[in-house]
Amino acid sequence: MTLLLMAAGKGSRYGKLKQFDGLGPNEEFLMEFSIYDAIDAGFNHVVIITQLDHVAFLQDHLMARIPKNIKLDVLSQKLEELPPGAEILVERQKPWGTAHAVWTARNHINSPFVVLNADDYYGRAAFHKAASFIKNPETTSPYAMVGYTLIETLSPNGSVSRGICSIKNGNLLSVEERLKIISENGEIVDLDSGQQFSGEEMVSMNFWVCQPSLFSEIETYFSQFLQDKELIKNSEVYLPFVIQHLIAKQKTTVTVLPSSGKWFGVTYANDRELAVMALADMTNKEIYPSPLWGNTY
């Protein structure tokens, strides 16, 4: 089983590259805890998508730490990497988005895989649920999403963007993006629309269980995207949009796996202290060893 981590973000609200911030008790990156939990669940291949300037650093950093029996591929997301026959005639600096980042790994993954953000903490239970889903011979859905309750994913330091899930019979119907959800004065509200939430809604935090067929679906979707001269100026191709497109076209079903574990992220600089405290607490409780990778340092 393969873990695919998206680590090409630029951390505009956080103020620096949060995927390389040493938040663990021994300066471990947040992604290292995801890798540790994935290995614990039986994953044996790690693929990381990052910016070209960070490939060598991340390769060296992780090769010195993770177990030697774990295969590691660190790849760069390149603007010029396009589907065959595609070309763009406009100047663009912004990355193509998370779906394009996943598509970057198409030649390195040929079995079911999990994809998630490198700068979020998902909890060990999420990886074990994903592994059980992949290994279960009676699984009827080819795809899955690990979901979290909205109230458990909010930041005390500002508004957050969350994908509110619509679910029927345990399957995902759609994900509605709400860009400015905040908790204040005892209420949870989307500042853009004014919609209020109970906090018990299931949200997507970009933890997906996927099949290799996704790569060809992304390529088709991306090729169509590139034909729109307005979209290619500044828009991005997001992985949830591609998956939702497949659901709408009845090309797949997506099982929702409610997580019983903890999630946290570092959207804002002030979220850092909370993340550091949470990781330290789990280490003190011996949920994680210290240092995380023991004698491999």
Results as ranks from 00 to 15, higher is better:
H128N: 13
W103V: 10
E217Y: 14
E80R: 11
L58G: 01
S12R: 09
G42A: 01
S260R: 11
Q211W: 03
E187M: 09
E177V: 05
E200Q: 13
S155T: 02
T252K: 00
N185L: 03
N169E: 15
P240C: 06
T255K: 12
V115D: 05
L154W: 02
V254M: 09
A105P: 11
I182H: 01
M31N: 05
T220D: 11
V55D: 00
L231C: 12
L89R: 11
N157L: 07
K285W: 06
V90A: 00
I151V: 14
L52K: 13
R92I: 00
V237S: 09
R13L: 12
L89D: 14
K233Q: 14
L5D: 02
E200N: 15
I39L: 01
E286G: 06
S166P: 05
E230G: 11
T255S: 09
S76L: 04
K71R: 14
C165A: 15
M202R: 11
V115Q: 06
M1L: 08
K229P: 04
A64Y: 13
Y288C: 08
Y268R: 00
D192P: 01
Y221L: 09
E177K: 02
I167H: 07
H100D: 09
E87I: 13
K168N: 14
A56H: 09
I35T: 00
H61L: 03
W208G: 10
Q77C: 09
T50C: 06
L3Q: 03
N169R: 12
L239T: 09
S290R: 12
S198E: 00
T296H: 15
W208I: 11
L274A: 15
F133P: 07
K249R: 07
N44R: 14
L79P: 05
S198I: 00
Q59E: 15
